[in-house]
Protein backbone atom coordinates (compact mmCIF):
# COMPACT_ATOMS: atom_id res chain seq x y z
CA UNK A 1 0.00 0.00 0.00
CA UNK A 2 1.04 3.57 -0.56
CA UNK A 3 3.01 5.38 2.11
CA UNK A 4 0.58 5.55 5.00
CA UNK A 5 -0.13 9.09 5.98
CA UNK A 6 -1.72 9.26 9.37
CA UNK A 7 -4.62 11.66 9.33
CA UNK A 8 -3.68 13.05 12.69
CA UNK A 9 -0.08 13.37 13.76
CA UNK A 10 -0.66 14.48 17.29
CA UNK A 11 -1.04 17.89 18.75
CA UNK A 12 2.46 19.11 17.90
CA UNK A 13 3.73 20.70 14.75
CA UNK A 14 6.47 18.60 13.06
CA UNK A 15 6.86 16.07 15.82
CA UNK A 16 9.95 13.88 15.63
CA UNK A 17 9.59 10.24 14.65
CA UNK A 18 9.84 7.97 17.68
CA UNK A 19 9.46 4.58 16.05
CA UNK A 20 10.38 3.68 12.52
CA UNK A 21 9.61 0.19 11.27
CA UNK A 22 10.69 -0.67 7.76
CA UNK A 23 10.20 -3.88 5.85
CA UNK A 24 9.70 -5.94 8.97
CA UNK A 25 8.66 -9.56 8.54
CA UNK A 26 8.56 -12.24 11.16
CA UNK A 27 8.44 -15.93 10.45
CA UNK A 28 7.69 -18.36 13.20
CA UNK A 29 8.96 -21.88 12.97
CA UNK A 30 7.22 -24.05 15.47
CA UNK A 31 8.96 -27.32 16.18
CA UNK A 32 6.79 -29.87 17.79
CA UNK A 33 9.66 -32.04 18.98
CA UNK A 34 11.64 -30.54 21.80
CA UNK A 35 13.76 -33.45 23.02
CA UNK A 36 16.61 -35.33 21.39
CA UNK A 37 14.63 -38.54 21.44
CA UNK A 38 11.81 -37.00 19.51
CA UNK A 39 14.22 -35.45 17.06
CA UNK A 40 15.99 -38.74 16.47
CA UNK A 41 12.77 -40.66 16.10
CA UNK A 42 11.46 -38.11 13.68
CA UNK A 43 14.75 -37.61 11.88
CA UNK A 44 14.24 -37.17 8.17
CA UNK A 45 10.61 -36.49 8.64
CA UNK A 46 11.35 -33.33 10.54
CA UNK A 47 9.50 -31.23 7.96
CA UNK A 48 6.25 -32.66 9.08
CA UNK A 49 7.12 -31.67 12.63
CA UNK A 50 7.77 -28.08 11.77
CA UNK A 51 5.15 -25.48 11.27
CA UNK A 52 6.05 -22.38 9.51
CA UNK A 53 4.03 -19.23 9.23
CA UNK A 54 4.45 -15.53 8.78
CA UNK A 55 3.21 -13.56 11.72
CA UNK A 56 4.20 -10.29 10.09
CA UNK A 57 4.81 -9.47 6.45
CA UNK A 58 6.56 -6.34 5.20
CA UNK A 59 5.36 -3.93 7.79
CA UNK A 60 6.33 -0.31 7.23
CA UNK A 61 5.29 2.37 9.62
CA UNK A 62 6.44 5.45 11.41
CA UNK A 63 5.06 6.76 14.63
CA UNK A 64 5.41 10.41 15.52
CA UNK A 65 5.99 11.68 19.03
CA UNK A 66 2.88 12.48 21.00
CA UNK A 67 0.53 10.20 19.09
CA UNK A 68 -1.53 7.44 20.62
CA UNK A 69 -1.69 4.56 18.22
CA UNK A 70 -4.09 1.65 18.52
CA UNK A 71 -3.06 -1.68 17.02
CA UNK A 72 -6.16 -3.71 16.33
CA UNK A 73 -7.05 -6.83 14.43
CA UNK A 74 -8.54 -10.25 14.84
CA UNK A 75 -6.89 -12.88 17.02
CA UNK A 76 -3.67 -14.03 15.42
CA UNK A 77 -3.40 -11.04 13.13
CA UNK A 78 0.05 -10.21 14.44
CA UNK A 79 -0.65 -7.16 16.56
CA UNK A 80 1.00 -8.44 19.71
CA UNK A 81 3.95 -9.71 17.67
CA UNK A 82 4.34 -6.26 16.14
CA UNK A 83 4.27 -4.71 19.59
CA UNK A 84 6.94 -7.13 20.76
CA UNK A 85 9.09 -6.38 17.73
CA UNK A 86 8.83 -2.66 18.48
CA UNK A 87 9.68 -3.39 22.10
CA UNK A 88 12.76 -5.39 21.07
CA UNK A 89 11.52 -8.57 22.70
CA UNK A 90 11.38 -10.44 19.40
CA UNK A 91 13.92 -9.97 16.66
CA UNK A 92 12.29 -9.72 13.22
CA UNK A 93 13.28 -12.21 10.53
CA UNK A 94 13.96 -9.31 8.17
CA UNK A 95 13.68 -5.55 8.22
CA UNK A 96 14.74 -3.00 10.79
CA UNK A 97 13.20 -1.24 13.74
CA UNK A 98 14.54 2.11 14.87
CA UNK A 99 13.59 3.88 18.00
CA UNK A 100 14.52 6.82 20.17
CA UNK A 101 13.82 7.75 23.74
CA UNK A 102 13.04 5.76 26.83
CA UNK A 103 10.69 2.86 26.46
CA UNK A 104 8.42 1.19 28.96
CA UNK A 105 6.36 -1.82 28.10
CA UNK A 106 3.16 -2.64 29.94
CA UNK A 107 2.96 -6.04 28.33
CA UNK A 108 1.93 -7.91 31.38
CA UNK A 109 1.66 -6.26 34.73
CA UNK A 110 3.90 -7.77 37.32
CA UNK A 111 5.87 -9.96 34.92
CA UNK A 112 8.99 -9.13 36.84
CA UNK A 113 7.56 -9.76 40.28
CA UNK A 114 9.04 -12.51 42.35
CA UNK A 115 6.40 -14.02 44.64
CA UNK A 116 8.82 -14.61 47.50
CA UNK A 117 10.08 -11.04 47.71
CA UNK A 118 8.26 -8.28 49.53
CA UNK A 119 6.45 -5.50 47.74
CA UNK A 120 9.27 -3.11 48.56
CA UNK A 121 11.94 -5.41 47.14
CA UNK A 122 9.84 -6.00 44.07
CA UNK A 123 9.39 -2.29 43.49
CA UNK A 124 13.14 -1.80 43.36
CA UNK A 125 13.65 -4.87 41.21
CA UNK A 126 10.88 -4.06 38.77
CA UNK A 127 11.78 -0.41 38.50
CA UNK A 128 15.33 -1.45 37.72
CA UNK A 129 14.08 -3.86 35.08
CA UNK A 130 12.18 -1.00 33.50
CA UNK A 131 15.29 1.15 33.53
CA UNK A 132 15.17 3.30 36.64
CA UNK A 133 18.25 3.75 38.75
CA UNK A 134 18.15 3.06 42.46
CA UNK A 135 18.24 6.77 43.24
CA UNK A 136 15.31 7.52 40.96
CA UNK A 137 13.31 4.70 42.47
CA UNK A 138 13.97 5.97 45.96
CA UNK A 139 12.70 9.35 44.87
CA UNK A 140 9.51 7.87 43.43
CA UNK A 141 9.00 5.24 46.09
CA UNK A 142 6.40 7.00 48.23
CA UNK A 143 4.53 8.12 45.19
CA UNK A 144 4.49 4.55 43.85
CA UNK A 145 3.14 3.14 47.10
CA UNK A 146 0.61 5.94 47.24
CA UNK A 147 -0.64 5.33 43.73
CA UNK A 148 -0.87 1.59 44.23
CA UNK A 149 -2.89 1.96 47.47
CA UNK A 150 -1.04 -1.05 48.84
CA UNK A 151 -0.27 0.82 52.03
CA UNK A 152 1.26 -1.12 54.89
CA UNK A 153 1.37 -4.34 52.84
CA UNK A 154 4.38 -3.00 51.03
CA UNK A 155 6.61 -5.08 53.32
CA UNK A 156 4.64 -8.29 52.81
CA UNK A 157 5.68 -10.91 50.30
CA UNK A 158 3.73 -10.34 47.13
CA UNK A 159 2.52 -13.92 46.98
CA UNK A 160 0.10 -12.97 49.75
CA UNK A 161 -1.27 -10.05 47.76
CA UNK A 162 -4.72 -10.12 46.24
CA UNK A 163 -4.60 -10.05 42.46
CA UNK A 164 -5.86 -6.48 42.57
CA UNK A 165 -3.04 -5.32 44.82
CA UNK A 166 -0.56 -7.13 42.62
CA UNK A 167 -1.74 -5.41 39.48
CA UNK A 168 -2.03 -2.01 41.13
CA UNK A 169 1.50 -2.13 42.41
CA UNK A 170 2.82 -3.22 39.03
CA UNK A 171 0.92 -0.49 37.24
CA UNK A 172 2.11 2.10 39.72
CA UNK A 173 5.71 1.19 38.99
CA UNK A 174 5.25 1.27 35.24
CA UNK A 175 3.74 4.72 35.17
CA UNK A 176 6.54 6.15 37.30
CA UNK A 177 9.20 5.06 34.87
CA UNK A 178 8.78 8.29 32.92
CA UNK A 179 8.74 6.72 29.46
CA UNK A 180 8.80 8.56 26.16
CA UNK A 181 7.20 5.58 24.50
CA UNK A 182 4.74 3.36 26.29
CA UNK A 183 3.71 0.00 24.87
CA UNK A 184 0.48 -1.35 26.29
CA UNK A 185 -0.88 -4.81 25.61
CA UNK A 186 -4.38 -5.51 26.85
CA UNK A 187 -3.54 -4.64 30.41
CA UNK A 188 -6.03 -1.87 30.83
CA UNK A 189 -8.80 -4.41 31.11
CA UNK A 190 -7.73 -5.51 34.58
CA UNK A 191 -8.60 -4.29 38.04
CA UNK A 192 -11.87 -2.97 39.38
CA UNK A 193 -13.68 0.01 37.96
CA UNK A 194 -12.14 2.75 40.11
CA UNK A 195 -8.72 1.43 39.32
CA UNK A 196 -9.47 1.27 35.60
CA UNK A 197 -10.57 4.87 35.78
CA UNK A 198 -7.34 5.72 37.50
CA UNK A 199 -5.41 4.03 34.71
CA UNK A 200 -7.32 5.92 32.08
CA UNK A 201 -6.69 9.18 33.86
CA UNK A 202 -2.99 8.40 33.97
CA UNK A 203 -2.98 7.54 30.28
CA UNK A 204 -4.65 10.82 29.43
CA UNK A 205 -2.10 12.61 31.58
CA UNK A 206 0.60 10.86 29.56
CA UNK A 207 -0.99 12.08 26.35
CA UNK A 208 -1.00 15.62 27.66
CA UNK A 209 2.68 15.34 28.41
CA UNK A 210 3.40 14.40 24.82
CA UNK A 211 4.32 10.80 25.45
CA UNK A 212 3.80 8.33 22.66
CA UNK A 213 1.55 5.38 23.37
CA UNK A 214 1.11 2.26 21.30
CA UNK A 215 -1.60 -0.01 22.55
CA UNK A 216 -3.07 -3.31 21.56
CA UNK A 217 -6.68 -3.70 22.46
CA UNK A 218 -9.77 -5.68 21.59
CA UNK A 219 -12.05 -3.04 22.92
CA UNK A 220 -13.23 -0.90 20.02
CA UNK A 221 -14.68 1.61 22.43
CA UNK A 222 -11.41 2.04 24.28
CA UNK A 223 -9.49 2.47 21.05
CA UNK A 224 -11.92 4.97 19.66
CA UNK A 225 -11.83 6.93 22.88
CA UNK A 226 -8.08 7.11 23.31
CA UNK A 227 -6.31 6.80 20.01
CA UNK A 228 -5.73 9.39 17.37
CA UNK A 229 -4.46 6.83 14.93
CA UNK A 230 -5.51 3.24 14.35
CA UNK A 231 -3.60 0.56 12.50
CA UNK A 232 -5.56 -2.51 11.50
CA UNK A 233 -3.66 -5.71 10.97
CA UNK A 234 -4.92 -8.78 9.23
CA UNK A 235 -2.88 -11.94 8.66
CA UNK A 236 0.31 -10.08 9.40
CA UNK A 237 -0.19 -7.15 7.07
CA UNK A 238 -1.40 -3.62 7.58
CA UNK A 239 -4.82 -3.27 5.98
CA UNK A 240 -5.69 0.14 7.32
CA UNK A 241 -3.82 3.05 8.81
CA UNK A 242 -5.61 6.23 9.67
CA UNK A 243 -8.10 7.91 11.98
CA UNK A 244 -9.78 6.14 14.85
CA UNK A 245 -13.37 6.11 13.59
CA UNK A 246 -12.50 4.83 10.15
CA UNK A 247 -10.11 2.38 11.74
CA UNK A 248 -12.80 0.73 13.80
CA UNK A 249 -14.91 0.38 10.68
CA UNK A 250 -12.00 -1.14 8.80
CA UNK A 251 -11.48 -3.52 11.69
CA UNK A 252 -15.08 -4.70 11.52
CA UNK A 253 -14.68 -5.25 7.78
CA UNK A 254 -11.45 -7.17 8.27
CA UNK A 255 -13.16 -9.77 10.42
CA UNK A 256 -15.04 -10.91 7.34
CA UNK A 257 -11.93 -11.80 5.35
Amino acid sequence: MAAPKPSIVGPLANPPIVVSVSGVSKRFVIRKDKSIKERLVNFGRSRRHKEDFWALRDIDLEIAAGTTVGLVGANGSGKSTLLKVVGGIIRPTSGTVKRRGRLAALLELGAGFHPDLTGRENVFLNASILGLTRKETEGFFDSIVDFSEVGEFIDTQVKFYSSGMYVRLAFAISVHVNPDLLLVDEVLAVGDEPFQEKCMKKIREFQEEGRTIVLVSHSARQVEEMCDRVIVLSHGSVVFDGGAKEGIEALRNSFGT
Binding site: P11, L12, P15, P16, I17, V18, S20, A65, G66, G88, R91, P92, T96, V97, K98, R99, R100, G101, D180, E208, E209, G210, R211
Partner: peptide
Protein backbone atom coordinates in the same frame (compact mmCIF):
# COMPACT_ATOMS: atom_id res chain seq x y z
CA UNK B 1 -0.30 21.85 23.61
CA UNK B 2 1.44 21.65 26.94
CA UNK B 3 4.95 22.87 27.60
CA UNK B 4 6.20 19.45 28.69
CA UNK B 5 5.05 17.94 25.43
CA UNK B 6 7.05 20.44 23.40
CA UNK B 7 10.08 19.99 25.61
CA UNK B 8 9.87 16.24 25.26
CA UNK B 9 9.58 16.48 21.49
CA UNK B 10 12.60 18.77 21.32
CA UNK B 11 14.63 16.44 23.47
CA UNK B 12 13.61 13.43 21.39
CA UNK B 13 14.52 15.28 18.23
CA UNK B 14 18.09 15.55 19.44
CA UNK B 15 18.36 11.84 20.21
CA UNK B 16 19.57 9.58 17.42
CA UNK B 17 17.04 7.22 15.85
CA UNK B 18 18.92 4.04 16.61
CA UNK B 19 18.53 0.51 15.41
CA UNK B 20 17.35 -1.71 18.23
CA UNK B 21 18.85 -4.93 16.91
CA UNK B 22 22.22 -3.74 18.08
CA UNK B 23 23.57 -7.14 19.05
CA UNK B 24 23.28 -8.33 15.48
CA UNK B 25 25.98 -5.97 14.23
Amino acid sequence: MSETARERADRLERLPLSDIQAGGG
